[in-house]
């Protein structure tokens, strides 16, 4: 396990391509049941995808151990460590927190609570700043909601009231 994680982070590209390969195979397999007009395009595309994914796996095998060369496409320049991946997942978790809050208490309260939570729990910011930002964001969302006539999800809280 201790050796598996570093290996995964350095070679995440291999499982990812295998995953894409899996999706392509699924698409090819599923599309067998469609009528001709709906079937042909996904079949051709998925077949091409399978060949490309296999070619990419072969390339990765031949160049195993070598680091990806950077160029103008967007290979991330951040560090490639387990700790960094952990932090990344942590912040995806924070994104989920907002979605959950949104459906629980509605957008305006959720926005305020989210600022409070993220800035105090995660970043331990000075409370005056946190409160000011929290109120500011709530006001902003409220104003945008009124001005742009935005519509919000029905929250659990409003359902209870």
């Amino acid at each position: 396990m201790r050796r598996l994680l570093p290996w995964l982070t350095h070679h995440l590209q291999t499982p990812f391509v295998v995953l894409i390969l899996g999706v392509m195979v699924y698409v090819l397999w599923q599309s067998q049941s469609f009528s001709l007009g709906a079937r042909l395009f996904p079949q051709v595309v998925a077949s091409a995808g399978i060949l490309l994914a296999l070619a990419e796996l072969l390339r990765q095998f031949l160049r195993r151990g070598a680091r990806e060369e950077q160029d103008f496409t967007d290979l991330a320049s951040e560090e490639d460590s387990v700790a960094y991946y952990g932090r990344g997942m942590l912040f995806f978790g924070w994104l989920v927190v907002f979605v959950v809050l949104l459906f629980l208490v509605g957008p305006i309260i959720a926005a305020g609570m989210y600022v409070l939570l993220l800035l105090t729990v995660q970043f331990r910011s000075p409370w005056r700043v946190v409160v000011a930002l929290s109120l500011g964001l709530m006001a902003l969302i409220w104003v945008l909601g009124v001005v742009l006539q935005l519509r919000w999800p029905a929250s659990l809280l409003s359902g209870l009231i």
Binding site: I20, M24, V27, Q30, F34, S35, A38, P42, L52
Partner: peptide, 23 residues
């Protein structure tokens, strides 16, 4: 490969030339 993956994602939903919904 990424482009082909995009093409595959684009096939989800109503097929443009058949009255059928894919995936």
């Amino acid at each position: 490969l990424a482009a082909v993956f995009g093409l595959v994602l684009g096939t989800v939903g109503g097929a443009p030339v058949a009255a059928e919904y894919r995936f």
